[in-house]
Design a protein around this nucleic acid. Sequence first.
DNA 1: TAGATTGTTAATCGATTAACAATC
DNA 2: TAGATTGTTAATCGATTAACAATC
Lengths: 214, 214
Amino acid sequence: MLSDGMVVIPQATISRLPLYFRVLNEYNHLGISVISSEEMAGNLGITSSQLRKDLSYFGDFGIRGTGYDVSDLLKQIKEILGMDKNRRIAIIGAGKLGTALAGYPGFKMHGLEVTALFDIDEAKIGQQEGKVEIFHLSELSNKKRELGMEIAVLTIPASVAQQVTELVIKAGFKAIWNFAPVRLEVPEHIILQNEDLVVGILTLSHHLSRKLGS
Amino acid sequence: MLSDGMVVIPQATISRLPLYFRVLNEYNHLGISVISSEEMAGNLGITSSQLRKDLSYFGDFGIRGTGYDVSDLLKQIKEILGMDKNRRIAIIGAGKLGTALAGYPGFKMHGLEVTALFDIDEAKIGQQEGKVEIFHLSELSNKKRELGMEIAVLTIPASVAQQVTELVIKAGFKAIWNFAPVRLEVPEHIILQNEDLVVGILTLSHHLSRKLGS
DNA sequence: TAGATTGTTAATCGATTAACAATC
DNA sequence: TAGATTGTTAATCGATTAACAATC
């Protein structure tokens, strides 16, 4: 694919890139340097067409007749997902979920760094959670400037989520990952991703009801 | 819709039901007893067609010319999602994420109960996490029978996830909610839902790269 | 060159939406 | 009955897949 103008990339395609990244890492560790779309797709339980189509949105990364160079494709996917930017993350809400995420090993492994936690509970302010300090929410703007964070993670009660979202936007964050079970209103230019944990488990519960009739 | 034989319900439809449940709860608390699909859909930022179509997979819940009875529809959705079954959950892996989930208020609010935690770290065995006790993983079968759990949540390292999955299946669990970033192999009859937290944040990171060009 | 595998096109499949007959 | 809103059909939109020309 050549110059793209304004091609819309399906959300599903973007969601599969981390999977490609992971399996390529495995091949890399096994010392495999070239891989076909057929082989990789088989490993992931998808069609090779889908894999090739997904990659084609971003460029021509393969070699016809040969396959894909593993470490080259890894580098490309890192770039596509911004993993080369070492993005810094602020977690708002130093409760159980917030502090658990602060220590989540998956972040660092993917070029992401939790740089600060924020809360309004005075008892928590100044404490360290692993290597990450907890600041008062009123410091959000200052610390953002100081530490260069780009993504705000909301692990706060639904009742205050909209209010805190406005603070976060005022502080200059352009991307929000929202764990509160509520639909946030944000301006067009803010990138919002909802992570609703209840949806996942209720989906399971539904399938249990349906398949087992109980 | 009448008898369904083997209608396939889109995953997207099931994922929206918890949202419908939440907004209906709000109407209920406001004392609103009847609601139109137009009103509800507007509130959620979707089309009324989609809402009506989603509900039509499960039955005829509305009254033409009037709308939907809020508390009746709430009851129906509870039933569809198995929220009336009070399903019990076992969390495997009493690390940060596992213990955070054990205390997650969203579960109880949706008729789900975390009944036990499991780990292999002797230092953790016997401890209480909130109201939930931590047992040794070797007790999984016994405790499942004793406490009647149905859903296993995996909050364990990817490296042991497949091995633990086999234990979980042997213990008789029929549904698995997997937080480990790995593709699990399970028999056909096991209901598996992957919750890959890295996908969410990398999606944000990608959009940051794309929209801001940085 | 012969064999292999990509990138892309066109066909297929599935989900969303607009429109409207049914009906409260 | 007149007005409103459902449940459903058919049209539209978008994503997946099969097939194959391009090419290493």
